[in-house]
């Protein structure tokens, strides 16, 4: 089995409203899978279906090769976007309770909890109530609740919201560590830079439909425009610009440099080779900058959503 999760043609309607329309996706084992989409696209519904909180109207979900059932509850860790814990319950008791609901024994949960509290630099909060903690601290506790039972599949909905940069980084490292230890992660967020940084695969859901999915590099390759960002030190800027515009599509570029270079975005046609352009440029002046423009997830997101 190379796929941990398979969602086949899942649909869900709420009355007249279609929340998911025939959505299929496969999450490879050991990957970090980005579940993207604008607000109200249906991501939460999909996550709830995977968590068996709601049942799909049609379609099926397989986890690790078997149809989703109540046996899988212990295999999934879910961090919802809307965080919450019992405000008046003590941290220790609360986490133990939630871990027991996931099928851990009390003793086992206690050992793991100590381990995780150390790992996340959580101090002696055992006897504190949630309402006495800062928001970031409560978030950390919630993270521990999500991962404590060592699930195969981790679902994080906006995991970094509410964290300061230092703690966000800490959590990011933990997610990567968990992945390296064998967990598969589904990651839903609007922060594209973290998708860029973490995800191996992505799926884009828009208006209840899946409109894009694949390995992140493949998706990027699909969206690349063969455009290069170029900086060159040269006396006769306008003549070179003139010359280039006859061969290629060019546009002024804007990036930071130390000198007074000519900055351009140059789009190559399919037959052009980047090497040829580079040698042509080096023959005319000092090239300080020559970078292929890779479309950002952000651009891909906006472009795809707008086109649909």
């Amino acid at each position: 089995m190379s796929n941990l999760l398979e969602v086949n043609g899942v649909s869900k309607n709420y009355g007249d409203f279609t929340a998911l329309n025939n959505v299929s996706l496969t999450v490879p084992k050991g990957s970090i899978y980005g579940l993207l989409g604008p607000n109200g696209a249906g991501k939460t519904t999909l996550i709830r279906i995977i968590n068996q909180i709601t049942m799909p109207d049609s379609g099926s979900v397989f986890l690790d090769g078997t149809a989703l059932s109540s046996n899988h509850i212990k295999d999934i860790g879910y961090l919802p976007e809307e965080r919450g814990l019992y405000k008046t319950m003590k941290v220790g008791e609360q986490v133990l309770y939630l871990a027991q609901l996931k099928g851990l024994s009390k003793a086992e949960a206690k050992i793991r909890l100590k381990y995780w509290f150390e790992r996340l630099e959580i101090g002696d909060w055992w006897n504190k109530k949630i309402q006495e903690l800062s928001k970031g601290m409560a978030q950390k506790i919630q993270f521990v609740v999500t991962v404590l039972h060592n699930p195969k599949l981790l679902i994080f909905d906006e995991p970094f919201s509410g964290f300061d940069p230092i703690n966000a980084n800490l959590i990011k490292d933990q997610i990567l560590q968990l992945r390296n230890d064998g967990a598969t992660v589904i990651f839903s967020t609007h922060r594209m830079e973290s998708v860029e940084e973490l995800c191996d695969d992505i799926t884009l859901i828009h208006k209840s439909n899946k409109i894009l999915d694949g390995k992140l590099v493949d998706v990027k390759r699909q969206f690349k425009t063969n455009t290069y960002e170029v900086g060159i030190s040269i006396q006769e800027k306008s003549s070179l610009q003139q010359e280039l515009s006859q061969k290629f599509q060019i546009a002024p570029a804007n990036f930071k440099t130390l000198g007074d270079e000519l900055k351009l975005n140059i789009k190559l046609s399919e037959n052009d080779k980047a090497n040829d352009l580079l040698s042509f440029l080096t023959s005319r002046g000092d090239v300080s900058h020559f970078v292929e423009l890779i479309p950002s997830v952000n651009d891909i997101f906006i472009q795809t959503v707008k086109n649909n």
Binding site: I73, I76, Y78, E82, R83, G84, Y86, L98, L101
Partner: peptide
């Protein structure tokens, strides 16, 4: 307190 979603996933 929004804990409900965590609980009913279990």
């Amino acid at each position: 307190s929004r804990i409900i979603e965590v609980i009913i996933s279990s």
